[in-house]
């Protein structure tokens, strides 16, 4: 378990301009950031570029952090904004290339199918699935990150999962083994 108060202390020092505290924080959350980036951008190269840019943006705006206990959501939010901007900029369609090194296949849908289905979702659904399942965030924290009521988050999440299932069944229904 991470020691939360130690973490908050780091955030406070980082806000005051302590560079090593800032770098420690990024180290602490780099895996979460990377996975978030990857779930949106799908290429290792782009995810790394995202890490660079988000480190830069976080450093520049560290002073806007209001509540140290929500530093992680603040950071993830910067990443999501960046990813959405990137996707909008490129307006690209990504097909399943050999992008990720993945092990094993799952029972029902294989992972490539799942990924493609994810990318076919609208921005909000992708965002909410990323926060809930990849970041393992609680509904309450997602609501805070997205600045909307918890009820709305639940509705969105349900819609996202429904859309995901529709995509999976529509696309790969008869390919399932």
């Amino acid at each position: 378990m991470r020691n939360l108060s130690a973490c908050e202390q780091l955030v406070k020092e980082a806000i005051k301009g302590d560079d090593s505290a800032f770098l420690q924080l990024i180290q602490l959350y780099k895996i979460d950031l990377y996975k978030t980036a990857l779930s949106f951008l799908r290429s290792e190269e782009e995810a790394l570029e995202a890490i660079q840019e988000v480190t830069y943006r976080a450093y520049k705006s560290i002073r806007t952090v209001r509540d140290a206990s929500y530093f992680k959501t603040w950071l993830i939010r910067i990443m999501i904004n960046y990813c959405n901007d990137q996707l909008k900029k490129e307006k690209r369609v990504v097909f399943s290339e050999e992008i990720l090194s993945l092990q094993g296949t799952s029972e029902n849908y294989n992972e490539m199918e799942l990924k493609d289905a994810m990318l076919g979702l609208d921005e909000r659904s992708q965002e909410i699935i990323t926060l809930k399942y990849f970041q393992d965030m609680k509904i309450k924290d997602i609501a805070l990150t997205l600045q909307c009521p918890e009820g709305t988050v639940k509705t969105w999440l349900n819609k996202a999962l429904k859309a995901l299932r529709n995509k999976l069944e529509g696309n790969g229904g008869d390919q399932r083994v």
């Binding site: 996975k35 990720l100 799942l114």
Partner: peptide
Amino acid sequence: EEEQLKNMYDNVQV
């Protein structure tokens, strides 16, 4: 779906 989504990103190599 939830289960699979969770597994998917546990498997990512960093």
